[in-house]
Amino acid sequence: MAAVWQQVLAVDARYNAYRTPAHPQFRTQYIRRRSQLLRENAKAGYDPQLRRQYLKLRSQLLAQRYGPLSEQSSFRAHSNSIRSSRTTLDRMEDLEEEPRSQGSRGHRRSVSRGSYQLQAQMNRVAQEERAPGSLVPTPLAEASRAMAGDTTLSENYAFAGMYHIFDQHVDQAVPKVQFANDDKHLLACCSLDGTISVCQLVPTPPAVLQTLRGHNGPVSDFAWSLSNDIIVSTSLDGSMCIWNTHDGRCIRQIADPDSAQMLCCTFQPINNNLTVVGNSKHNIHGVNISTGKKVKGGSSKLTGRVLSLSFDSAGRILWAGDDRGSIFSFLFDMATGKLTKAKRLVVSEGSAITSISARSWISREARDPSLLVNACINKLLLYRYGPVALLLLCPA
């Protein structure tokens, strides 16, 4: 069955260069989607004889649609199809999940020997086609080139349709990107290289306005103030910094009350003089950024390392997620900054809650306030919650 689908994909790859000649990126998307569908259908166990008839009919239809290929282009397309089909066949074998019988293991060995022959032929063709000075690192790069409709590497990675690419943090990961409040042209991103970039999208060309430097360790999170003139950030160096976004100056640096790594932060939406931070010792703390001191009664403990925080729009409920799969809700006293623990929901035991966003919708279809939750179970979850019980009711 895998061999039949391999031949189907090879036929598509041969004619792929004729599809949408003005838009080569669409050819790449087509062949990738085609490969995905073939892998899925290969697991269904259809009659191989029917698939061979399908292969014959599809070859005839493609020949009628695009015409017969010339001998030279046929050879080139055939070599490209060998490379792309070999990659697809290997992926189909890797994705097989059911235990194989003794007979099926023998079939796998025979298929592997065939793939080695394809690899050898692929290497020979790659050397023949490679021009002096061309950038083709490995035979696998040639396979990717074939799937892209035999375009050059520069054409394949031209990022057609991209507005702009910011690459100032290219050497380290970027944990968070966030637009400023009510501003679609101003954004910031933090990096594990210890800096924060404030960027503008217009006027063109887009540019980095400020690079905020001052942390001695990776920056784990940041938040915009309501007026976008202040950014608060947390770092694994155990400190929180308050920044002036206009000149990039660090106004104040505050050490974590527990001398732990700071992992997340958020502004109180009504009173931006107060922030809440979470650390690696399972604690959340309310902090007055004017004085740099912890708010009395504004601390609480979770079951794990605090990875995400979010207030509701009114600033009366605080949500916190930890690395053990739990979400906690807290009542926030607007006058004193005191936190009172309300409810706990275990989303998935041991799966980190990496992001929480609370929203209230003005809609007939979504009247209840909601939480958008990112959990390390390969899912993005949307919950609605009751304003009285403060308990997550069910996925929306």
Results as ranks from 00 to 15, higher is better:
K43W: 02
P68C: 03
S104E: 15
I82T: 12
Q60M: 07
Q49S: 04
Q72S: 15
E71D: 14
Q72A: 14
Q72L: 13
I31P: 00
Q64V: 05
R58Q: 12
F26W: 09
N80G: 15
L89S: 07
A42G: 01
S104I: 11
Q36A: 15
Y66Q: 00
S79F: 07
S35N: 06
T28Y: 14
E93I: 12
L50S: 11
I31E: 11
D47I: 03
L95K: 08
S104Q: 15
L89V: 04
R108I: 04
S79H: 14
S74V: 09
R32M: 07
R34H: 06
R86M: 15
R39G: 04
I82L: 15
R34C: 03
H78W: 14
D94L: 10
P21A: 06
L37A: 03
R65V: 10
A44D: 05
R109Q: 15
S35F: 04
R108H: 09
Q53C: 05
T87R: 08
G103N: 11
G106C: 08
L89D: 00
S104G: 06
E96C: 05
R58M: 03
L95D: 08
Y46A: 07
G106A: 06
R105N: 13
T28A: 09
R83Y: 05
A44M: 11
A42C: 10
F75Y: 10
L89N: 02
T28E: 10
E93M: 14
N80R: 08
R105F: 12
Q53E: 05
Q29D: 10
Q64F: 08
Y54S: 04
S74Y: 11
S70I: 13
G67P: 07
P48L: 01
H23R: 07
Q64C: 03
T87P: 00
Q29N: 10
L57G: 01
F75R: 15
R100S: 13
R52P: 01
R83E: 04
T28K: 09
E97L: 11
R108A: 14
L61S: 08
R32Y: 09
L55W: 00
R51Y: 12
A22K: 14
Q102I: 11
Q36M: 06
R19I: 06
T20L: 07
E40M: 09
R34F: 06
R34W: 09
S79G: 13
H78L: 09
N80V: 04
L62I: 01
S84G: 06
P24F: 00
R65Y: 13
P21H: 00
P21S: 04
E97V: 13
D47F: 02
R83A: 14
I82Q: 10
G67R: 04
H23K: 04
K43R: 12
P24R: 01
R91Q: 13
L61F: 03
